[in-house]
Amino acid sequence: MTHKLQDLTEKIYNEGVRKAKEEAEKILKEAEKKASQMEEEASQKAKKIVDEAEKKAQETKMHVEAEMKMALKQSTTALKQSIANMVTMQAIEPATDQLFSDKKYLSELIVKTVEGWIKHESTDLEVILPESDRGKMEEYFKNQLAHHLNKGLSLSFSKNLKSGFKIGPADGGYVISFTDEDFNNFFKAYLRPKTNELLFESK
């Protein structure tokens, strides 16, 4: 009887141990499965973060490169323009300075302009001259244009005008300007493209 009871006890013990082991193995497998899933999820999240960071870095790089190319192109264009202007003006300015310093030539030009204007327009005309030239040119024009001055032509002098002259209707509706700056700009508009071509044409 004692032997049977011992066998039964041992059988119950072994059965309990077996079930406990099976339950432990089951729990361990589930834990390992969950750990594997968590590791996979963490790996995927990390990869996604890295991919997004690389994408943003690439976009930033492309944006910076585009901005640098644009800035380089603009600065190169501005530099070329500055060089072309300098070369053009060095060619133009001495000639226009000489032209406008020749008071005889300038006076004849004004007289011809006035006479040409009056042939097609009213004699109600105003000629504006530099204040600095009043002493040299006022008497000359009073003599040369006396018959026009008696018919509505007027002469005025302006401190804001440095060289050349301006001419227009006496009512001040508009004026046509003949100054060294006007001539410089006029010739520069024609010469600058050729200057650019000569300086920067690709060989």
Results as ranks from 00 to 15, higher is better:
32 E>L: 12
188 K>N: 06
4 K>G: 09
129 L>C: 03
173 G>E: 10
2 T>K: 13
23 E>F: 06
72 L>V: 09
119 K>G: 02
14 N>I: 08
113 T>V: 04
83 I>A: 05
133 D>H: 08
101 S>T: 15
151 K>D: 11
82 S>P: 04
79 L>F: 15
137 M>P: 00
33 K>D: 11
135 G>L: 07
30 E>A: 06
86 M>L: 11
128 I>W: 00
127 V>K: 04
146 A>Y: 01
20 A>V: 06
114 V>T: 05
33 K>P: 00
56 K>I: 09
191 L>Y: 07
139 E>S: 13
188 K>A: 11
149 L>P: 03
15 E>A: 15
1 M>F: 12
154 S>T: 15
170 A>R: 15
113 T>C: 03
47 K>G: 00
196 N>Q: 02
125 L>C: 03
171 D>E: 07
33 K>T: 07
128 I>T: 14
98 Q>D: 11
86 M>H: 15
3 H>N: 15
54 E>N: 10
6 Q>G: 00
127 V>G: 05
86 M>V: 08
161 L>Y: 07
111 V>K: 05
198 L>I: 09
34 K>W: 00
184 N>L: 06
164 G>K: 07
79 L>G: 01
37 Q>H: 06
141 F>H: 07
58 Q>P: 00
123 T>D: 07
86 M>R: 12
42 A>K: 11
135 G>E: 07
201 E>S: 09
88 T>K: 10
169 P>R: 09
80 K>V: 06
23 E>R: 09
26 K>R: 13
171 D>V: 02
50 V>G: 02
75 S>D: 14
75 S>W: 00
197 E>G: 03
174 Y>F: 14
1 M>E: 14
2 T>F: 13
160 N>Q: 13
129 L>I: 10
53 A>Q: 07
22 E>I: 14
19 K>G: 09
17 V>H: 02
63 H>V: 05
123 T>S: 08
184 N>G: 00
120 H>E: 09
18 R>N: 15
160 N>H: 10
47 K>N: 12
171 D>L: 07
124 D>V: 00
180 D>E: 15
104 K>E: 12
194 K>M: 08
197 E>I: 02
106 L>T: 05
101 S>L: 06
38 M>T: 08
154 S>I: 09
10 E>A: 08
